[in-house]
Design a protein around this nucleic acid. Structure first.
Length: 599
DNA sequence: CTGGTGCGATTTTTT
DNA sequence: ATCGCACCAG
């Protein structure tokens, strides 16, 4: 029985880990080791406090976070010694519960989870005139569901939509949570069973809970109130999808016995970066008392660059990337010898990320990087579930998996599949996928993803594996497959960057109007605070070097924007940065290949 | 039914 | 600037 992991924790972390009874709120700033603390706490509960892992539930928002936590717990608890606690996203845990209990609500246990595309189709059948209308409708319905408390009347087509779902034995993502909530509210026996089972509940990113998720946690928390939540009000950036920071700020009101612990030592970034990020976010009013610090080496000053336009911005970043690769050649990525931090200034492509507010900003960056021969990947670029061929696969699999019910299939395919399912009942998922790729004309990316996703199920016969495979598919397990070790610069939105870290970070488009983003008119005070948090999140992704860029003018959605520097830049004290201006470079009219000369 | 054309909208995103 | 969609013509 080893608890040596305790030695690697700082006093605050250890305090959080060793607190095992009653409600606990851990206020964990960016990069303060919150996942480590959470996982150690679970290990401690099991190894030291004698809690049965079966009595522990850990809830996260993303599958990545759940996966990460599982890995670390498995490591801390030892492979075979203990079973794993229930660790999963809100949605996956709810889906699991519903697989057991949903008959109470009048659905079949083999209900399907609709993707966005399928929701749209459903709405159009339910009476939406056009696609945009269905889109708007869906947005309203989802917003309505995510703010469950404000009973401001259901949006148009709401009841039609819900009826159609039920009629097809289907749910959408929002309903996964809402159904479980309803189950618990209306059926005390079921609630008591789960309450009795999950005696210790841990919630990650508590500041991001929307009302249904918040209520779910509240209702499921038993009389012992062994509820541990972790979060950071300064990283609340999802108000637009119903998250309410107030849940976090009010924790002690909801659970008066709650203890509050703060993790304030940042292990990720240089003191310069931590300080600057703090200075920016401390202008907010809606936050929790907390100060982040780092005792790492002071580090480079932040560079603030003023450039002419988005093209110049991209080019400057590209050339900077080349410099950071270690000087003269940019072919280091072929060799694996270069480790981040081994030799200051020598980074690999995957050590660097470019962050922006709007997806629309990615294009010029991609174009320029391609010209410069810099490999890059756009994170959360294409969603696999939006591919038409993947969609087809999904309905085919559904058809094969269940009683044929409402399979919406082109007749021709239906015919070939019936024969397929007859002849293939003894064969493997692998074979099935091969067959499917023929029938659906899958493109290479889709096929590769499908194969990767099927990997865990390959040794089962498809009769047993298909339902679980399909279930995974519906919960969107597909987007896991991006390779985090890809030798490429990462391009991503500031939102998508949350939870990630990179030695070198470029944040671009830091102009008034873009950051904070003013869609139409000027943003409200609340919105500005949220944008400021977003900028804070972006800054704290950087470990060693941080570059902040703003352009004097920028073409966005086809028309030019004026470019005052973002007011957020004013909040950083001068000692922490070095500012440079890139003068307009007179370019001969020839556009092609012109840029190559720069490198 | 299919391909061309023109119009409008275009934060941020997970599951 | 770009993309997707609705609509229309063949």
């Amino acid at each position: 029985m080893s608890l040596e992991f305790l030695n690697e924790l700082n006093p605050q972390q250890r305090q959080a880990v060793c607190h095992t009874q009653g409600p606990l709120m851990i206020v964990a700033g960016a990069g303060t080791g919150k996942t480590r603390t959470l996982t150690c706490r679970i290990a401690y509960l099991v190894r030291e406090a004698g809690v049965d892992p079966a009595n522990i539930l850990a809830l996260t928002f993303t599958r990545r976070a759940a996966w990460e936590m599982k890995q670390r717990i498995a490591h801390l608890l030892g492979e075979k010694e203990f079973m794993l606690p229930e660790i999963g996203t809100f949605h996956s845990v709810c889906a699991k519960i519903l697989r057991e209990e949903i008959s109470v609500l009048g659905y079949d246990r083999d209900f399907v989870i609709l993707t966005e595309e399928e929701q749209i189709d459903l709405l159009r059948e339910a009476g939406a005139k056009s696609r945009p209308e269905a889109n708007a409708c869906l947005k309203q319905i989802s917003a309505f569901k995510n703010r469950r408390c404000a009973e401001t009347g259901a949006p148009p087509l709401f009841s039609e939509y819900q009826a159609a779902l039920k009629q097809r034995n289907a749910t959408d993502f929002d309903d996964l949570i809402l159904h479980v909530l309803r189950l618990f509210e209306t059926t005390p026996q079921i609630l008591n069973r789960y309450m009795d089972r999950f005696r210790h509940i841990l919630v990650d990113e508590y500041q991001d809970l929307n009302p249904p998720q918040y209520m779910l946690v509240r209702i499921l928390t038993g009389p012992d109130q062994n509820l541990c939540v972790v979060g950071d009000a300064d990283q609340a950036i999802y108000a637009f999808r119903g998250a309410q920071v107030e849940n976090f700020l009010n924790f002690q009101k909801d659970y008066p016995r709650a203890e509050i612990l703060r993790l304030e030592q940042n292990y990720r970034s240089s003191p310069v970066i931590v300080k600057a990020a703090e200075q920016v976010v401390s202008r907010n009013t809606l936050r929790m008392e907390k100060r982040l610090w780092s005792d790492a080496e002071t580090g480079e000053r932040i560079r603030i660059m003023e450039v002419g336009d988005e093209k110049q911005e991209a080019r400057w970043i590209a050339s900077r990337i080349e410099t950071l690769l270690g000087g003269t050649s940019m072919f280091h990525h072929d060799t694996d010898r270069i480790q981040a931090g081994e030799d200051p200034g020598h980074y690999s492509f995957s050590d660097m990320a470019v962050l922006f507010r709007l997806r629309a900003q990615a294009r010029p960056l991609q174009a320029t990087f391609e010209q410069a021969g810099i490999p890059c990947r756009l994170l959360s670029g294409e969603r696999l579930d939006r591919r038409p061929d993947m969609r087809q696969v999904r309905s085919l699999l559904r058809f094969l998996a269940g009683p044929e019910k409402d399979a919406v299939l082109p007749g021709m395919l239906k015919a070939s599949l019936i024969s397929l399912s007859k002849t293939r009942e003894q064969s493997s998922l692998q074979d099935l996928i091969r067959e499917l790729s023929g029938i659906c004309h899958l493109d290479e990316i889709t096929l590769r993803s499908l194969k990767a996703m099927a990997l865990p199920y390959l040794n089962l016969t498809w009769g047993t594996s298909l339902p679980s495979f399909l279930h995974d598919l519906c919960l969107g397990r597909e987007s896991d497959l991006f390779d985090p070790r890809a030798q490429a610069v990462t391009l991503l939105t500031m939102h998508a960057a949350k939870g990630l870290e990179f030695p070198v970070v470029f944040i671009c488009g830091l102009e008034e109007g873009l950051m904070p983003y003013a869609r139409d008119g000027s943003p409200s005070a609340d919105e500005i605070e949220e944008e400021r948090r977003l900028f804070h999140v972006a800054m704290t992704r950087a470990m060693k070097e941080l570059y902040l860029l703003h352009a004097r003018t920028r073409i966005l959605y086809g028309s030019p924007l004026p470019g005052e520097p973002s007011p957020f830049l004013q909040d950083i004290e001068e000692a922490l940065f070095q500012a440079d201006v890139l003068k307009k470079k007179s370019r001969p009219p020839k556009k092609e290949n012109q840029q190559l000369g720069l490198f």
